[in-house]
Design a protein around this nucleic acid. Sequence first.
DNA 1: ACAGAGTGCTAGCAATTGCTAGCACCCGTG
DNA 2: CACGGGTGCTAGCAATTGCTAGCACTCTGT
Lengths: 113, 113
Amino acid sequence: MKTKVTEVGEFIRQQRERSAISLRKLADRAGISNPYLSQIERGLRKPSARILKAIAAGLSISAETLYERAGLLDGAAHPEVMEAIANDNTLTERQKQALAEIYKSFVEAPGEE
Amino acid sequence: MKTKVTEVGEFIRQQRERSAISLRKLADRAGISNPYLSQIERGLRKPSARILKAIAAGLSISAETLYERAGLLDGAAHPEVMEAIANDNTLTERQKQALAEIYKSFVEAPGEE
DNA sequence: ACAGAGTGCTAGCAATTGCTAGCACCCGTG
DNA sequence: CACGGGTGCTAGCAATTGCTAGCACTCTGT
């Protein structure tokens, strides 16, 4: 199931407001100009991946999330978390279990914030 | 850290030659102009993510790979788990970060055992 | 030898990105 | 009231992207 439709800028604004941070402050953190961030949030400009990455860092979210939102990555064809963990040979069994436990606790306790 | 390595254009050229396909043909497949692809391969231009994605499709490789090479994504030593986490809609951003942190700490701290 | 198709590259341009400077507005404090 | 300091936004520009047109070179085949 894809969380599409939301424009990148719109999503960025949501995330920013959810963090109760001003536009200028986020622009500062991301190292970009505040007018430009403003235009991005309103969908007037299509930022480059470099800028998206900086914004993601400023928002403390993953760049992948923004890229996907921007249509720069298709979220399809990605393995599920549990499956990926199980298939990762660099993890010990104990680590796999620990990760799985944590993941499950997150999923089963929604609305967390 | 890490992920220094080869320039993205250099990598593209390697992949293209490994496929024994001409520059023009790849440009055609990717739907971009051949002079521009030429400049990208020689490192004269920094292509946008949109173009990188198209090239990746033309080369039948994942966009993530190119993004990573271009410095648009970091980490990715173990993309499966990280991507699965990033694309899991049931997790909040905070939870995603937490899981990613834990996973990374596991992977980057070997010698366990 | 010439024509033709294939290769990669240079030149020059329209459109877009991302910037600085500055406007209009809303607060709180003297 | 006036003065900062905060918010988001508009205007205008330099730099960059990504394009079309065309050059120089190498192979084929006739």
